[in-house]
């Protein structure tokens, strides 16, 4: 009997931008900030401001949990996606391809917890392969693709916006490129990653995305905010 359920949570051909509802057989995807119509906002704000914001398209996200079976997880990851676990807690390992900086990125966020991101359509495949590679080892894998919104904040004042928003010490001396932390973001929580200098990734709970977006607009007001739809 199957011990852990692995189910496909991705509908093929479904990465089209949301249009008017037409055919029930053509699923459309909505990101958490779809209602904001960021593309239109982007036109309005122009570019070249102190802070730049974007919401990534739906990104495949898998929570990986392991305690004593870390080695097993490590080797399963290596066989399936050829990525290794980060060496230190609160850091990440990314695999890039072409212009994509992190096609796969694994973030070590708690002693027994990692967050793996991947293209949305690959999440089921990766989970399945990890499961079969892990065999009976006690590792938890949870597909949480729909549960989060992946945001990007960049620009010369992005760090200032973070300082207004999180209690974590985001000074580059402490929060250097490649560091990932779970912390607060205003009254919400965030998985925060320093992608490169002045470029940050915010993974927030989907239901809080609208709040976070409103907060960022207010916090970046004095620096100017440009929006892009990546």
């Amino acid at each position: 009997m199957e011990k852990i359920l692995v189910s496909d949570q991705y509908a093929p051909d479904s990465l089209s931008e949301r249009a008017e509802f037409g055919d029930i057989n053509v699923p459309v995807v909505e990101t958490a900030l779809q209602h904001v119509n960021l593309r239109q906002v982007a036109t309005r704000t122009g570019s070249g401001h102190g802070v730049s914001f974007s919401e990534l398209p739906v990104t495949g996200l898998l929570v990986l949990r392991a305690r004593s079976e870390r080695a097993a997880l490590q080797s399963a990851l290596q066989t399936t996606v050829n990525i290794k676990l980060p060496d230190t807690l609160q850091s990440e390992v990314s695999v890039s391809s072409g212009s994509h900086k992190s096609v796969y990125c694994i973030r070590w966020v708690a002693p027994d917890e990692w967050m793996l991101s991947c293209p949305a359509q690959d999440a089921f495949d990766i989970e399945t392969r990890l499961r079969s590679s892990l065999g009976g080892n006690s590792v938890a894998i949870v597909n949480v693709t729909g549960g989060y919104s992946v945001l990007q904040l960049s620009g010369q004042h992005a760090n200032d916006v973070l300082k207004k928003s999180t209690v974590y010490d985001v000074h580059p001396q402490n929060f250097s490129v490649g560091k990932v932390v779970n912390t607060t973001f205003a009254k919400a929580q965030v998985m925060l990653r320093c992608v490169s200098n002045d470029e940050y990734e915010l993974i927030v709970r989907r239901s809080f995305a609208d709040y976070v977006w409103h907060w960022i607009q207010v916090a970046s007001k004095e620096y100017g905010l440009s929006v892009s739809r990546s």
Binding site: V109, A110, P111, E113, V181, N182, T183, T184, Q189
Partner: peptide, 8 residues
């Protein structure tokens, strides 16, 4: 508990 961090 480190509620907003590692939840430990």
């Amino acid at each position: 508990q480190h509620t907003a961090g590692c939840r430990k």
